[in-house]
């Protein structure tokens, strides 16, 4: 069985969308919930647990969406910036190194 993956939804507001377009990464957005753009960065179980520990406001929505929610906006901005820099959504190891 493939390893379980837990998404962090980075909702793409206008500011984030501009950055993506500039970097030629607009195609990385997925569409969810009737037209919202989102970039999904996936955590494995260990990364999920570390995130929940390091950022106490974060919550794993185990009942409905199976995603990691309620990370502070500035934390999501940082993850987003690494995504843009690396042109990849596989960035959590690098991001979590600093914590």
């Amino acid at each position: 069985m493939a390893e379980e993956k837990y998404p962090i939804n980075i909702w793409v507001n206008e500011e984030r969308y501009e950055k993506l377009k500039e970097a030629g990464l607009a195609h990385m957005c997925e569409e969810m919930l009737a037209g919202m753009k989102v970039i999904r960065v996936y955590a494995n179980a260990a990364q999920r647990d570390k995130i929940l520990k390091v950022f106490p406001t974060a919550k794993f929505d185990s009942a409905t969406t199976k995603s990691i929610e309620l990370l502070p906006r500035n934390v999501k901005d940082k993850i987003f910036d690494v995504v843009v820099e690396r042109k990849s959504v596989d960035v959590l190891d690098e991001f979590l190194k600093d914590y």
Binding site: N9, W11, N13, E15, M36, D61, T64, S67, L70, R73
Partner: peptide, 14 residues
């Protein structure tokens, strides 16, 4: 979608 997910969206400024 859940209330938590909506909160995340709102907090992201969307």
């Amino acid at each position: 979608f859940s209330g938590t997910l909506i909160r995340s969206i709102v907090e992201d400024g969307v």
